Amino acid sequence: MSTIELQIRKDDLSITRLHEADDTRLADGQVRVRIDSFALTANNITYAAFGEAMNYWQFYPTGEDGWGTIPVWGFATVTHSLHPGVAVGELLYGYFPMASAVVLTPERLSPERFADGTAHRAALPAVYNQYFRSQADPLYTAGTEDIQALLRPLFITSWLIDDFFADNDFFGADPGVALLSSASSKTAYGTAFQLAQRDGIEVVGLTSAANKAFCESLGCYERVLAYEELDQLAADMPCVYIDFAGNGALRHAVHTRFTRLKYSASIGGAHVDQLAPSGAGRDLPGPRATLFFAPAQIKKRSAEWGAERFGERMALAWNAFTTQVTDPRAPWLRVEHHHGAAAVQAAYAAVRSGRGDPRSGHILSLSRG
């Protein structure tokens, strides 16, 4: 058998290729999993855009300079096992390459999860090395795999962003305004869903004119403005900026206009062709744009609350969010499936362009089984 993988040019994210290689023989303690399906969202494009700075390329190195594999979230089935604690047929949720299969080295097993002990991942953030065993995963519900793959990792980030700002009293912008760029993105509207539950915070979505109606339909933004409508907001209002777009020109406009900007959080790079260059924010007025790193907030809250309480609070928020998103009267998301190498390449190009329907959620598969 062989494994097929979608690889990306690190210096030009529009260039892709399909790489096929024979499966390697498993060593004792390893398992091979078939990657059944995975989600592709703007969040994964962010992984590529920040691949060098945040070490995302290091999770699944290609072994060839200039080419990388973007990590994705999805579900996989164990097809071969030389580990006594992991059975063939187990369903796993976790962080995989854009590929048809991958080899893992399970360690630190519990009924709910295990960690991948592959040597080159040892120094990478532990949260990305966890694989949840669906039979005992408290967030797993059979039949909702697509929604889980699309929204679970994004919503966890959204929930943590909201918690981070609340934990820091909104840096003095409470009462005040939270400005969210790329408001139609799934991580942005998940954050807006959480922020809208807090008294004293007006949640304002910034988006393209084409996506304005979609954002307004969600009901989690008190106001939605097109990017060119920033002047409709008072320049002296206390506010925080939560930047999912990474657009350098927009960031400059926000920092220049709002004289009481209390904090500027850089989350992603949805506008991949207009990303602010490294160091570009140092000369901007107001607070320096600071990259938000979700694993740091997970570590902090897990230490303060304990892992069990952390998981319970997150599960409650996740259930409330997915109930809203999947409400049949007005669903926020429509799942689209793409199977096979050509379809996966085409879906990647569409998501990278950022011009797709914001209501679409893309589920991909390179699996032959």
Results as ranks from 00 to 15, higher is better:
residue 9 R to V: 00
residue 10 K to S: 14
residue 11 D to N: 09
residue 12 D to V: 03
residue 19 H to D: 07
residue 21 A to N: 07
residue 24 T to Q: 15
residue 29 G to P: 15
residue 41 T to F: 00
residue 53 A to K: 10
residue 58 Q to P: 09
residue 59 F to M: 14
residue 59 F to H: 13
residue 66 G to R: 04
residue 68 G to L: 04
residue 71 P to L: 10
residue 71 P to I: 07
residue 72 V to L: 09
residue 76 A to L: 03
residue 77 T to M: 06
residue 78 V to P: 07
residue 80 H to D: 15
residue 82 L to W: 04
residue 83 H to R: 00
residue 84 P to G: 08
residue 85 G to M: 05
residue 90 E to F: 04
residue 91 L to R: 12
residue 91 L to M: 15
residue 95 Y to I: 04
residue 97 P to Y: 11
residue 101 A to W: 02
residue 106 P to M: 11
residue 107 E to L: 13
residue 118 T to I: 11
residue 120 H to I: 13
residue 126 A to T: 11
residue 128 Y to A: 10
residue 129 N to K: 13
residue 129 N to L: 07
residue 130 Q to L: 09
residue 135 Q to K: 13
residue 143 G to P: 07
residue 147 I to P: 03
residue 149 A to I: 02
residue 159 W to E: 04
residue 161 I to E: 01
residue 162 D to P: 01
residue 166 A to K: 14
residue 170 F to S: 05
residue 173 A to C: 12
residue 176 G to C: 03
residue 180 L to Y: 10
residue 183 A to R: 13
residue 184 S to Q: 07
residue 190 G to C: 13
residue 204 V to R: 02
residue 209 A to W: 02
residue 209 A to T: 06
residue 215 C to E: 03
residue 218 L to N: 07
residue 221 Y to W: 14
residue 222 E to S: 15
residue 223 R to M: 12
residue 223 R to K: 15
residue 227 Y to C: 03
residue 227 Y to H: 06
residue 234 A to C: 03
residue 236 D to K: 10
residue 247 N to Q: 08
residue 256 T to M: 00
residue 258 F to V: 01
residue 259 T to G: 10
residue 273 D to V: 05
residue 276 A to E: 13
residue 277 P to E: 04
residue 296 A to L: 11
residue 310 F to S: 12
residue 310 F to Y: 14
residue 312 E to I: 11
residue 319 N to Q: 15
residue 320 A to N: 15
residue 320 A to I: 00
residue 324 Q to P: 00
residue 325 V to F: 04
residue 330 A to V: 08
residue 334 R to Q: 13
residue 337 H to R: 10
residue 343 A to E: 08
residue 343 A to Y: 02
residue 355 R to C: 08
residue 360 S to G: 02
